[in-house]
Design a protein around this nucleic acid. Structure first.
Lengths: 127, 127
DNA sequence: TAATTATAGATATTATGAGTCTATAATAAC
DNA sequence: GTTATTATAGACTCATAATATCTATAATTA
């Protein structure tokens, strides 16, 4: 019952990029990896998912690195979580119980509220 | 990012016991296991945790089985989850970041709200 | 004493998270 | 154009936890 460490890395990376945003520079993965005390190849894998979702921009080559796209202020914590872990689900709905199951319904309500809360929180808050 | 299947079994077992409560009888694990389509020995292991927390009562011997204790109407969904999975934590706080970490703080807020919601929901609602 | 029920321990299986290593592609500096 | 720098992608390993199963034991009633 917790989000993956990958999500944690991703959120910290996003927060760091956001905090460096004024300078307009690109941040190489090695710098991010040093900050987070994680291997750069592994962090690359995680960041690749954010690139795929266009939450960050990757630039190859010398003086390259990662940066934030226009409109990054709208990216939510939920966006990042889904990019890394996929849609969060408190219960496995492929089990026994369909819509008529009160347990399933109750958990869905709690889950929906949690998701709503995460959608309302944005990366820009983390600077 | 989901609760264990064990929690699911436990909630369904509790709901079933509650629904049979009027009859005052004890329900053997085999009957519960049949309902949930799970092996009785495995379900026993899960129910043992509820017994330890006094959320259900186990009676050995012929005509024995599981039943609910006095005051069972106050047992929350959260109680059951903690009994099976332990305290839920959205993030591993043993990582890098202490109280000053904004990500940690944000996730703690979301987590606290979720826990509060689960504490406000009781087994009695599931009948 | 025998039947019925729960409990506990050892073990197996499987899935997933977490991470490494290596090769490849893209781009800028020279 | 060559080289250095950067990101990307795939195969693979390792550890851990969930999800059970099986067997033996303890408790209680008929």
């Amino acid at each position: 019952m917790k989000f993956s460490r990958g999500t944690d890395y991703a959120l910290h990376a996003m927060a760091y990029l956001a905090s460096q945003q004024e300078k307009g520079g690109k941040i190489p993965v090695q710098e991010l990896a040093d900050k987070l005390a994680v291997s750069s190849t592994y962090l690359s894998k995680i960041l690749a998912r954010l690139v795929k979702m266009k939450y960050i921009i990757a630039t190859s080559g010398a003086k390259g690195g990662y940066s934030l796209p226009a409109g990054w202020e709208d990216i939510s914590v939920y966006n990042v979580i889904v990019a890394i872990d996929g849609e969060p689900t408190l219960f496995e709905d492929s089990f026994n119980h369909g819509d008529e199951c009160k347990i399933q319904r109750l958990m869905m309500e709690v889950e929906t509220d949690m998701i709503e809360a995460l959608k309302n929180r944005r990366i820009v808050e983390l600077i």
